[in-house]
């Protein structure tokens, strides 16, 4: 990225690649209300959107689905068959409420990144994925202690059966760190980093296109601008896929953690 910027900078007069500072540190929408920034607005909008669409679909569900219900049911089925059932088995239905909420909310958060005008993935601010990951983490520990007992939970986690005795001494700290600290951290950071990087890339290429085709149109710069536009279009497609994929993975990991707490298998 920095290398690219250096290469391109001389071509356009004063082209500067967008810095994370510009892209992610956004000013308040209403001057003075410091907390009311674009991500906050979009987070609220996402919640309203998720509730609105789901309400339209499932408030009075029909036996034979039609219209919105059909579409949202597709999402519900996806979560049930790809996320809940593989990891929770017969407990899947009890956790569908949580998993559907998480999946839909994260999906809309992410998709905000490619919606024209809005164009900001909410999850690229770490606070939002962190909150969800924290809730899941709390639930995981709570369920683990509830279903396996306080001692049993940590014993099952840190002393997986089937290992030679002395090696436990070396492995137990790894298991603890991996399960209790790294897992929730990566849960949030994976989503955050993907959205952050995706937004950077999109912003960079669209900026290139805009700069070289509209701001400073030169014979030399025009092809670069075209490349920027083409890349923006291609990356938008890729980004939509990644946004969906990350929402799926986030929900899947949530299901995995819950399932692991309900039934320790190893």
């Amino acid at each position: 990225m920095n290398a690219l910027t250096v290469l391109l900078a001389p071509a356009g007069d004063q082209f500067g690649a967008p810095t994370p500072e510009e892209l992610f540190n956004l000013p308040p929408i209403i001057p003075g209300v410091y907390w009311f920034t674009k991500p906050v607005l979009l987070a609220m909008l996402s919640a309203v959107l998720v509730i609105g669409v789901t309400w339209a679909a499932f408030a009075k569900p029909k036996l034979v689905p039609r219209g919105v219900q059909n579409a949202v049911e597709l999402g519900y089925m996806f979560v049930r068959d790809q996320v809940a059932r593989p990891f929770l088995g017969k407990d899947a239905d009890r956790w569908m409420g949580l998993l559907v909420s998480v999946f839909f909310l994260v999906l809309v958060w992410n998709l905000m990144g490619v919606v024209p005008v809005l164009q900001f993935p909410v999850a690229s601010h770490i606070a939002f994925p962190a909150v969800l990951a924290l809730v899941i983490y709390g639930l995981k520990v709570y369920l683990g202690i509830k279903h396996q007992g306080g001692v049993g939970y940590f014993k099952n986690m840190m002393f997986p059966p089937g290992l030679p005795k002395p090696i436990y001494f070396l492995l137990a700290p790894i298991e603890f760190l991996s399960n209790m600290i790294i897992a929730p951290f990566t849960h949030a950071v994976r989503l955050f980093a993907n959205m952050f990087a995706g937004h950077m890339l999109l912003a960079f290429f669209s900026m290139v296109g805009f700069w070289f085709l509209f701001e400073k149109l030169t014979p030399l710069g025009a092809p670069v601008g075209v490349v920027g536009v083409v890349m923006t279009i291609l990356l938008t497609g890729l980004e939509i896929f990644i946004q969906y994929l990350q929402a799926f993975l986030f929900a899947m990991l949530a299901a995995m953690y819950i399932g692991g707490s309900l039934h320790p298998e190893h």
């Binding site: 990891f87 760190l177 990991l253 995995m256």
Partner: peptide, 16 residues
Amino acid sequence: RDFADAMWSVPSSLLA
């Protein structure tokens, strides 16, 4: 579930 468990616990175990 086993497969996914393994996939996800490889990096975090190595890191830990």
